[in-house]
Amino acid sequence: MDRRALLRATVLGAGVVALPFTGWSAAYGAAQAAPGPYGPLRAADANGIRMPRGFSSRVVARTGRRVPGTAYRWHQAPDGGATFAEGDGWCYVSNSEVLAAEGGGASKISFDRDGRVVSARRILSGTDSNCAGGRTPWHTWLSCEEIDRGRVFEAYPAGGAAKARPAMGRFKHEAAAADPVRKVVYLTEDEPDGRFYRFVPDVWGNLAAGRLEVMCAGPGTSGAFTWAPVPDPGGAPVRTRHQVAAAKAFSGGEGCYYANDTVYFTTKGDGRIWQLDLTAGRYRLAYDDSLVKPGPPPLTGVDNLTGAESGDLYVAEDNGSMDVCLVTPDGHVSPFLRITGQRRSEVTGLAFNPAGDRLYFSSQRGRTGLTTGGITYCVKGPFRRP
């Protein structure tokens, strides 16, 4: 197996990509604006997407309409997403951030080796406000409810009934990221005083039982951190975030991504990306929109994020200018694409296909600003390689 094939296998098997952000700016303690590696954004295409030269977009699905080539109607408010290898192609899984009565849960679209739609179907139903989530190394999708005392559900894109995983905590869940080295799953909480958690399963690969822990650290933006058990993961009557006095508060936890002994997560309330060095047991700011000098910052409303084989990090905006921004390993931040004419929406569900040449994402509310206006896209092009 050559190096590129090995990297792709790593992405497929464990969701791990080398993201060596060791060169990020020391002057302000966070990444800074700089020209992007692909050049400037060109005029919007027929789908209203601005991208660099060499990239192209297509609409994959629209809320309430049949996914092209299938009889399945795409769900409302598409949110967090991931891809999985499937046959000689792959599938894209997407959450629906609406109540169960409106069709909340998750769906998937299957593609052949050339990226053509093969089928589409529901993989999770009867759940509320499924926002983000995360894939596991054993090829399941963790779909997270963003409601008070929400649950994590483990869905099976390859087939099988989804299962609730209450041991992972009952709180306002956002995203999840599996760490196959430490055999834990990291979890964000979308509250103004949310916490950052990890779930330690009794048996790796089985999330039915285990221990929920919360990150503990001082009030600063860098330093050492530890983990402490959450006494009552059920969160009643005392919510999980208020059970451990030393737990560090974060302003609106959003996206979460693990790679190369490091976990990254975003906090939308203060426009930050946080970086935890899991080997050293230390954390720091990787990006802060208020520290970009000179302004204005290229990335605001930080939300969902994912990584590429190149070591680049891709971060979606909630509102703002509806950008997906790129953060390079040397700490340069720039817009990679922009969805035009949809300022009342947000960008969600960032996920690369297994080959790394297609990026899937959604505009959750599209042009209408309503949950019924969602659009799911795919951008193809010469993404950087290691």
Score class of each variant (00 low, 15 high):
R122T: 15
F250R: 03
G54F: 05
H139R: 15
K163M: 13
G104Y: 08
G126Q: 01
K248S: 09
V263P: 01
A259D: 11
L212N: 04
V59W: 03
A355W: 03
Y72W: 12
R239H: 11
L187H: 07
P233Q: 04
H173D: 02
V98S: 13
A286H: 12
S362N: 13
A176D: 02
N47C: 14
L370N: 14
E254Y: 06
G311Q: 08
P297F: 00
R241G: 01
Q76W: 04
T221N: 15
P52E: 13
R284C: 07
G331N: 05
G381V: 07
P354I: 00
E346Y: 00
P40K: 06
T306M: 06
R343T: 14
Q275R: 12
V263F: 03
V60N: 09
R182D: 14
Y258K: 05
P237T: 04
S119E: 14
G255D: 02
L291E: 11
Y360I: 04
E213R: 00
I273A: 06
V379Y: 03
Q364K: 12
Q342A: 15
E346S: 09
A247R: 00
S321R: 13
G307F: 01
G13C: 06
G374T: 05
G252I: 02
G331R: 01
G234C: 05
C91M: 11
G381F: 06
D288R: 07
S143A: 15
Y264D: 12
T340P: 02
A155K: 12
K293S: 14
L370E: 15
E213C: 04
T83E: 11
S143M: 06
L212E: 07
A101L: 10
P68N: 12
F196D: 07
L337C: 14
D128Q: 11
I273E: 04
G269E: 11
G356W: 00
E189R: 00
F21R: 02
P192S: 14
L6Y: 13
R121F: 05
F352I: 08
V93M: 09
L124H: 06
A161Q: 15
S222D: 10
A355N: 12
G23E: 15
L285N: 03
F55D: 12
S334D: 04
G320L: 02
P294H: 03
V59Y: 06
A120S: 14
T240Y: 00
R58A: 11
E86H: 13
N47Q: 15
S345N: 11
T348D: 03
A259W: 00
Y360R: 08
D330F: 06
Q243I: 08
M1A: 14
S107F: 00
